[in-house]
Design a protein around this nucleic acid. Sequence first.
DNA 1: ACCATAAACTGAACCGGTTTAGGTTTCCCA
DNA 2: TGGGAAACCTAAACCGGTTCAGTTTATGGT
Lengths: 362, 362
Amino acid sequence: MSVEHDSRQRVTIMDVAKRAGVSKGLVSFALNDRPGVSPESRERILTAARELGWTPSLRARSLSTRRSFALGLVVGRTPEVLGADPFFPSFIAGVESILAPEGRALVLSVVPDEEAELRTYRSLVADGRVDGVFLSDLRHNDPRIPLLVELGLPAVTLGRPEGLTPTDLNPAGRSPFPAVSIDDTVGIAESVRYLAGLGHSRIAHVAGSASMLHGSRRRMAFDDAVRAAGLAECQTIETDFSIGAGAAATRRLLDQDVPPTAIVFANDPMAIAGLGVAHELGLRIPGDLSITGFDDINFARYVYPPLTTVSTTPAQWGRAAARTLLFLMEHGSAEDVDLPAARLTVRGSAGAPASAAIATGT
Amino acid sequence: MSVEHDSRQRVTIMDVAKRAGVSKGLVSFALNDRPGVSPESRERILTAARELGWTPSLRARSLSTRRSFALGLVVGRTPEVLGADPFFPSFIAGVESILAPEGRALVLSVVPDEEAELRTYRSLVADGRVDGVFLSDLRHNDPRIPLLVELGLPAVTLGRPEGLTPTDLNPAGRSPFPAVSIDDTVGIAESVRYLAGLGHSRIAHVAGSASMLHGSRRRMAFDDAVRAAGLAECQTIETDFSIGAGAAATRRLLDQDVPPTAIVFANDPMAIAGLGVAHELGLRIPGDLSITGFDDINFARYVYPPLTTVSTTPAQWGRAAARTLLFLMEHGSAEDVDLPAARLTVRGSAGAPASAAIATGT
DNA sequence: ACCATAAACTGAACCGGTTTAGGTTTCCCA
DNA sequence: TGGGAAACCTAAACCGGTTCAGTTTATGGT
């Protein structure tokens, strides 16, 4: 009994209806299991559909339901920064692992600057390409938030936004979008405590961009931890998170009369660049200089010495974000999710400073 | 004269037709600039559309034209391998730079294995999600090629496929899909020649997966170059392109009685891992061991010593691939594109072997 | 036996475009 | 002046689903 022979004509809901001896409306009802279909009819319809190998046309569904069954991710980074950071590949893999079984697709955009980013959101909505979006790399007074509110596009933020204007807040005074967050301050605090415990007193921080929430938050965590450890003012240099900027910052720090004995980097790419600069200057690591990173990218374990860093879980973040966004779109609201805090992973790049005398200056 | 006030009702082609005093069919004609529309009408219609801020509904267009105006990229890699390799972010950025102005979106899938990969292509087609796809990471007898032929999905391959069965070939005996390629054998040959020129005679190769075309092709290029340089048989170790495998391979190579004095790695992540292993073993680079990589990822310039490697241009590849795929879809066929060969970029990780005595064994 | 009500189901409108068959004009030339 | 072709345009069908008003059928209460 061959039913699969394609007669050069995609099988439609009408074919299924005819074969089951019902109207196409009822087929639709049965498929979206809604009430008002007798068990027998439902069975007959589903059987017919199976026999014909029918799958409802996504395009037709899109048109009549005004949904696209796709989610969007707009990444506003230069290829330079993007390429060095394995966050997105892992994050996307996590997202996909949730979306694929649900029959939803991910529409990805990579754009170089903020203006293009906002344009992209507008056109995604104008074209009805996506039903919701992931908002990553939050910034202070992030212009994307009011834009998405204006566009009425459901979203999930990676981390809690800050600096929202009253008009953006929802009635309860909260962010208009659910946030899926991971506490990265714990890891920074642990890094500083660990270094201080090893005997370091001149600890510097190579921070990420202050305009990015995770950049400034890690910096504040660093300052707090330094203070908590009873250390004197510690140096911080702001960068844009790029490898090159990390190398330059390291050079500046080490090129001082009294250089730091340890550097806490805001991400692993910069830390690895720092490692390179230190080697180049002939410093022993961790003897002359201790280094910690943030992210625990794959490279971290394989550079020399292996990088002591803070381990994050982007794939898990992706899964949680995808689940939250799907829930939001289905139920109209969703709870914030807090993932387990990122914790310090100790490897070889940090150790006791070689000379306490130099460190204390006495 | 406010026309922008949204009356809670998206403006449709009908609104434009009414305002221009024509039928909606004619609006469609004017918009897709087809013959049979008088200049005056066309002008009136376009003006009306502009005034109303009308954009044709992508969803409606999709339904009636049976196109999705989106292209697909299915990446079959584990997050582990994917995250370390900045190829895709750059490639995607290149693709996007072409697609965005054309109003096309990129649908991205990341799947862990080949089975899921094939499933994904099937469902992308069944759902009509994409009008064409990019085929990367070509493998020998790649099962995706016959699948895409069967599905009738236009595609562009990144590199020329091999091992096609006669049924897959088109009438002219060529691959059914246009290929956008970059010659990576030149870079490998240059690496070997460069090392040989420095005085190395025991050069090893840490190859990528032999099942991947670029893995085996680079390996063959290595063998050819070694022979051309008049060197004795040189060692090769096959890996899966992952950082960890690169580290393990390096360890095995260096843990021999007569270790190589230079290693040519099939990609940068493995080369960087090799650098780490060498450092760990207390070797001086390039004095005791020379290392070359492949890709010229961002990290390459910032590790110590900076990596001598072969520079590729993934963003350019992405642009060319996107242009070719768009052309293919519009005209039904497209020419192969050959990008400039990847060339060696000399930095510090390769140099003359410290002792010619050890190198020659005399 | 009869009416009320719920459950099951149908038919048609609708989503917003494209496409095609056919109908007017207009213009040209015999 | 008429005939024919070309240019322009309209109306309606179509893409393949969802949805809803309304009809039929089954159930139940009195």
